[in-house]
Nucleic acid binder design. Sequence first.
DNA 1: TCGAACCATCGCTGTTGGCGATCGTGTCGA
DNA 2: TCGACACGATCGCCAACAGCGATGGTTCGA
Lengths: 298, 298
Amino acid sequence: MTDLELRHLAAMAAIAEEGSFGRAAARLGYTQSTVSQQIAALERSVNGPVFDRPGGPRAVRLTPLGAIVLEHGRELLAKAAALAEAVDRFHAGDGRIDIGTFQSVSTVILPVVVRRLRDEHPGCDIRLSEEEPDTPQIGDLDLLFYDGPLDGEVEYVKLLDDPYLLVAKHGAFSRNAVPLKQLDGAPMVAWPSICGQRRMEEALARSDTNPKVVFRTAGNEMLLSMVRAGMGSAVLPRLAIQAAGAESDDRLRIHELRPALPPREIYLHWPRGRTQSPLAQRAIAIAIEVAADLAKKK
Amino acid sequence: MTDLELRHLAAMAAIAEEGSFGRAAARLGYTQSTVSQQIAALERSVNGPVFDRPGGPRAVRLTPLGAIVLEHGRELLAKAAALAEAVDRFHAGDGRIDIGTFQSVSTVILPVVVRRLRDEHPGCDIRLSEEEPDTPQIGDLDLLFYDGPLDGEVEYVKLLDDPYLLVAKHGAFSRNAVPLKQLDGAPMVAWPSICGQRRMEEALARSDTNPKVVFRTAGNEMLLSMVRAGMGSAVLPRLAIQAAGAESDDRLRIHELRPALPPREIYLHWPRGRTQSPLAQRAIAIAIEVAADLAKKK
DNA sequence: TCGAACCATCGCTGTTGGCGATCGTGTCGA
DNA sequence: TCGACACGATCGCCAACAGCGATGGTTCGA
């Protein structure tokens, strides 16, 4: 079964269409004798003749066995062509890519990356999944955004530093730059304490600043509403603030912190030692570009 | 596209299932180095790695490209297996056969042949076609029954001689053997004058015997009804008489003719120079057997 | 009867498929 | 930390084979 060769089937199909070994050979770029031997080999492997050769200038003709072989053979050739085309598409950058992200990490970067990827490769199949917050694992993902470097079988790049800023109700703080200490005991709304959020709060604590967190949610809109309502202020990464449109809201004011907190770092991870698809490689490149643009625009 | 080989895909599938080049090699009956080279060749033809080799005792793993190749590859292998199975079935005698017959030629033989063929090969696809009476051609048929040998690109065997007998109303003729001359001017019912029928009537004429044909039809039942009704007698081949059940009808009597007319000869034809399917070969053999049995039973 | 258009076959050659042996490498246990 | 594995990659070798050109055998048509 595995001793039949696609080459032979292709020759057979060509002969069936041309009606002659010689013309088929010319079409395929072979010699007549080669094609003759190919068919002989094919006939050996199906254990019977596939063409009747009437002799003389009359066209060869499929035998009943030949009809069966060719019928299936054409399907095989079609599948082989489909495979070749799929491989070409893959190399051209189409295909599937699985991207993971944790919570709201990169609500700004990821959408831009996805859009540019779709623009470049309209046929590609981009799958996003928001991972559970407790187990940062690459798993079967091609790419994973996370606010910090991960351990294990991964490689990564730091995409950018995302500085923490204070969002407060307009008038709550008079200066543009707010001393950290001023937040000690102050009412705050915040993200759930996972990952980077926990690191940030630990950094606050190391500066003897312990705000009173009165509400936690992962929803940025909700947080800003709470700030506007006077529940408290919020310490958020700049990208999250921009994405939520807090800058253009007159009721809110963005302050820097003094001293500045260590910024949230957004990392892009991918499995180490695994061959990346061209699509994934492109996605990494795009993500780095987009991050660089964001960092430049400050 | 045509440079990929089923062998390589089979190796790839085995590796994907075994998780190791070596185990796959053992399963396929190859050496590890051979399998390694097969995959190398495959990777050359798809222009990229299909497995990541982590090194050490860890299992190899499909790359994204490999996943695509294997996905299509499995289909290819399945198609190849289907081809092999179809070929096997063909050699076992299943398959399609087109049988042609002219008018009522072999109303006895053909049904028996078909029944035995179906019994031997329940999966076979037997197609019968009754041809137009004016153009005896083999065309694309595998087998053709005809009452006489045909010219052209055919081979044939004579299956049997089918003697012409006289069917008359009981009491119309006193003797068992009726002299031909007695039919001269006598009323007769007969088949349409085609093929063997015309030959038979010409033989009558050569003996200066010109019956008066009062009715023609290809329907044997109809003919016998006419005979019973006293319209005339009928000269028919023995097989047709037996098939119509005239022998067991008290109102009818079967007579021999003196001298006997040259018998109807039933021939089986098949295209010359074309390879026959095993099924067709078997059908020919069966037809010859059946005809011999009929001739023996007289 | 010859020529033309076929396919089969033969000898040859460069390539390749498969093998055994060896090497490099990563993992895991002592 | 360091061998002892368990892998796949690679090398050299040999037999097999694919493809080629030339030749031969058939069949049909002029």
